[in-house]
Write a protein that binds this DNA or RNA. Structure first.
Length: 553
RNA sequence: UGUCCGAUGGUGUAACUGGCAACACGCCUGAUUUUGAUUCAGGAAAGUCCAGGUUCGAGCCCUGGUCGGACAACCA
């Protein structure tokens, strides 16, 4: 039995490259376009790229692929940097494709000089028509055979701003009959009189992705350039530019992007949800964005663990969100502070507990922590328990509170339900219970054994808090498979706001801590909280076998 | 009609590179438990897309199919 985990296909490539002495160190890059916020799919890529460099020795650059000024913005740059660091990774160099605009322009000239690029006056429709189809070869542009001198002059004039947007493009001169559509004289440069978030107005021509990405990799001497499957057909072009331009031979490798059940993972769709106000913003806790899951209370540790567990391969996949939730619970169970909060109160009056009396009980902050400390929990004659923890007529498997039944109050006493107080309409108003004085937690001499333990909050000490309970954003498991507008599958109940009653220890809650509301789930303080109003987000529920059992009937 | 990529339990990922399919999630059962949580023990679940072939032996190799996906933005 080997205790070493088997390598994924990319690790195998890196491993064998290193063993073959191909590189002394590996260099990877994470290349987001600053036109949206990072999501869980990016997390997979980040963990992969940074993880590879960390594991095999080397480093990772953060490079913004900012070649399209009309969609990009510094707001996104800042959020992306923040998200990568939050996830726990540090890049070696912060770079921008726009840093290479001058060099890239030079590469364009070089290709023209080699007779491998030309300026085309065709419209975008004409160019599209020239492309042909995957099964039919394309046709040459009428401008394909311009002289080098003319191309050089025209390209320079494009750069100088002599032409309006769309008037001309620079195209590679490869083969309009090529079996690979991407090799049919792809566009290298287009004219966009647009303000760039970094270069301002110095350029009015901008390189296309294909003409920028590989060359940027080469300039940075990236050894392994890792991207998603849809770029497979681009690889031939990627290699062509490097060969013709005689650059450092970076290599592109592709892996399957992450898909998760009950959510979408495309920037375009996420942007739509934000713009059309289906969610409160990029950091809405229901969003699969990193800012969203962060606000929801997911920890970077749990996301890294998740990325490790899902593996890396080339086959398309749909990961069960349940796995992410498992990773989150696993981590939160270890670190969160236990607190009691009642969401749907039912008043319990402990009739044999003296009126006006109160006492402080000790509650463990975290039973998973060997150096457990405790917090004070006030107890008194009137408390709240959950409505759902009481049943007037209970099935045999129900071992919570019912008339004549006994339960333990967590960190406190065993109580017995003596009677039910109802209003004229027969609605339950409160429960009258008695407590067993010698059953106090920590000094229980009663000898009584009960099956159920309930969380509770003292009525007079209860702190009203707002809780936001999240459910899956969409109703269907596989959005990729769903017909029509993806927004028609939104789950109308994905957010539920509930006013709840918390124990006073929560008054000191901070955003740095994570909390487990006993028997309810993991929660974190939301930044919307003020001194007078605490707001908690439910990160994830606890596993609930009883809910499953109850559903069986 | 083309080219490329892929195919292993419900979901993912493995399989010492040709040696009788493993791990995780989920599911089921039981134990422990002052959270029906956690933890622990056990179980069900694929014979590896199909058909041939090579071989003592094939999930891994070969041939031919089938199915799924990608590819025709002045997006990345």
């Amino acid at each position: 039995m080997s205790d070493e985990k088997s390598l994924n296909f990319l690790e195998e490539i890196v491993d064998s490259d290193l063993k073959a002495g191909k590189y002394k160190q590996i260099i990877t890059r994470f290349p987001p376009e600053p036109n949206g916020y990072l999501h869980m799919g990016h997390a997979k890529s980040i963990c992969l790229n940074f993880g590879l460099a960390l594991k095999y020795g080397g480093y990772t650059n953060l490079r913004f692929d900012d070649t399209n000024p009309v969609t990009e913005d510094t707001e996104y740059v800042e959020s992306i940097k923040n998200d990568v660091q939050w996830l726990g990774f540090q890049w070696k160099h912060e770079l921008y494709a726009s840093d290479y605009f001058a060099q890239l322009y030079g590469f364009g000239i070089k290709l023209i000089e080699k007779g491998l690029a030309y300026v085309d006056d065709s419209t975008s429709e004409e160019i599209a028509a020239q492309k042909g189809t995957p099964t039919q070869p394309g046709t040459d542009s009428p401008y394909r055979n311009r002289s080098k001198e003319e191309n050089l002059k025209l390209f320079q004039e494009m750069k100088e701003g002599k032409y309006p947007d769309g008037a001309k493009v620079l195209r590679a001169r490869i083969d309009m009959g090529h079996i690979n559509m991407h090799m049919r004289d792809p566009i290298l440069y287009r004219i966009k009189h647009a303000h760039h978030h970094r270069t301002g107005d110095t350029w009015c021509i901008y390189p296309m992705y294909d003409f920028a990405h590989g060359q940027s990799d080469a300039i940075e001497q990236i050894t392994h350039s890792i991207c998603t499957l849809e770029f497979i057909p681009h690889r031939e072009l990627y290699d062509w530019f490097i060969a013709k331009l005689e650059l450092y031979p970076s290599h592109q490798y592709e892996f399957a992007r992450l898909n998760m059940t009950y959510t979408v993972m495309s920037k375009r769709k996420l942007l739509q949800l934000v713009n059309e106000k289906y969610v409160a913003g990029w950091d809405d806790p229901r969003m699969p964005t990193l800012s969203g899951v962060r606000r929801r209370g997911y920890t970077p540790e749990s996301i890294r663990e998740f990325c490790d567990k899902i593996g890396v391969a080339k086959r398309e996949n749909l990961i069960d969100v349940g796995l992410l939730e498992f990773c989150v619970r696993e981590h939160l169970n270890k670190i969160s502070l236990r607190r009691m909060v009642v969401f749907d109160p039912l008043k319990v009056i402990i009739t044999n507990y003296p009126e006006g009396k109160g006492e402080m009980l000790a509650g463990e902050n975290n039973p998973e922590d060997p150096n457990a400390t405790t917090r004070d929990v006030p107890f008194s004659r009137e408390i709240y328990i959950e409505q759902e923890d009481f049943m007037e007529v209970a099935p045999k498997k129900f071992f919570r509170l019912a008339p004549g039944q006994m339960v333990r109050l967590k960190n406190a006493y065993i109580i017995r339900c003596e009677s039910v107080v109802k209003d004229s309409a027969g609605k339950i108003q409160a429960l009258h219970c008695t407590y067993i004085p010698e059953s106090r937690s920590g000094s229980d001499t009663s000898g009584i054994n009960v099956k159920g333990t309930l969380h509770w909050v003292s009525v007079q000490h209860a702190v009203p808090v707002e809780t936001r309970l999240y459910d899956r954003l969409f109703k269907v498991e596989d959005l990729g498979d769903a017909e029509g507008d993806f927004k028609s599958y939104l789950n109308p109940d994905s957010l539920q706001v509930v006013q709840a009653y918390a124990e006073p220890a929560l008054l000191e809650a901070t955003t740095a801590e994570r909390y487990q509301f006993l028997r309810k789930g993991y929660f974190c303080l939301d930044p919307d909280s003020t001194h007078t109003k605490l707001v908690f987000n439910r990160t994830v529920t606890l596993r609930d076998m009883w809910a499953k059992e109850a559903k069986k009937d």
